[in-house]
């Protein structure tokens, strides 16, 4: 039962970004994304500036570009949707490489790609420098309702259990020559999910009883100091403040 102590997404480290209090990082990321989304899509230089800001954070946190690129692959389905836009949208046509595409659609695609990618990279940096457990403590400090934090805590705790069971089932299915080819495969997948739910629940119930036996009363005991100093808030504010400046500049002029 080595799971739960560290997470696959977390990259251990001791950089200033890692040491920052989780609640500061959460607020900083939200503010940064707000600034990015509020930027008019025609100001391409502003998005370049945001990318440079994120690259600086990644450099300070010692998170390599390869890791970020690999994790950013999750964005691919949205990218395909964005790439389709120039072809299906109406409006004025422009010629790109000899193909007439909608100008409006082109801007729409750029809008989704640029803002989406910046948000995704921001989240990747947060997840790589913050343990999920610390993130929950941070959310608690930010007065996120206790019920939500509790659901999220149980969820993260059992995610590895569910993933482990699911992986074993997938191996078992593959070993029996199963391959999800079309809609008919849904029947098999549905059965597996039913079994998965029951297995996970009964395992979770045992864990819950064990937790109760050890004095669990609805919240995890905090082991380290979680209060953030004004200095930490100041450090965390550098990224959103710079982003806000860029956004303001983008709104003012060209």
């Amino acid at each position: 039962m080595g799971a739960g102590h560290a997470h696959r997404l977390y990259v251990p480290g001791a950089s200033p970004v890692h040491r920052l209090a989780p609640q500061c990082k959460l607020v900083a990321l939200l503010a940064f994304v707000t600034a990015v989304v509020a930027t008019p899509r025609e100001r391409m230089w502003a998005f370049a500036a945001y990318a440079v800001l994120l690259a600086a954070v990644a450099a300070v946190a010692r998170i390599g570009p390869g890791l970020i690129a690999r994790r950013a692959l999750i964005e691919l389905p949205f990218v395909t949707f964005a790439l389709l836009l120039p072809f299906v949208a109406h409006g004025e046509r422009v010629s790109v490489l000899g193909v007439a595409v909608s100008q409006d659609g082109l801007w729409g695609a750029w809008n989704i790609l640029a803002k989406g990618t910046l948000g995704v990279v921001g989240s990747i940096l947060l997840a790589a420098t913050t343990e999920p457990r610390a993130l929950l403590l941070g959310a608690e400090r930010l007065r996120v309702p206790a019920q939500l934090v509790q659901i999220a805590a149980f969820m993260l705790r059992y995610l590895d259990v569910v993933a482990g069971e699911l992986a074993r089932m997938r191996v078992a299915l593959a070993a029996r020559g199963f391959e999800a080819r079309d809609v008919r495969a849904t029947r098999v997948l549905a059965r597996s999910l039913g079994a998965l739910f029951l297995r996970t629940y009964e395992r979770g119930e045992r864990v819950h009883l064990a937790m109760l036996a050890r004095g669990y009363d609805g919240r995890m005991p905090a082991t380290g100091a979680v209060a953030a100093t004004p200095g930490q808030w100041g450090t965390a504010a550098v990224l959103p403040a710079a982003a806000a400046l860029v956004a303001a500049a983008a709104w003012m002029g060209g």
Binding site: Q150, I151, A153, F154, Y158, L159, V162, L189, L196, Y201
Partner: peptide, 19 residues
């Protein structure tokens, strides 16, 4: 709360299963 967390974890896991 336990059942809710488990359901969340389950939905999370199931959402990764694309058909």
């Amino acid at each position: 709360a336990l059942l809710a967390g488990l359901t969340a974890a389950f939905v999370f896991g199931a959402q990764m299963l694309n058909f």
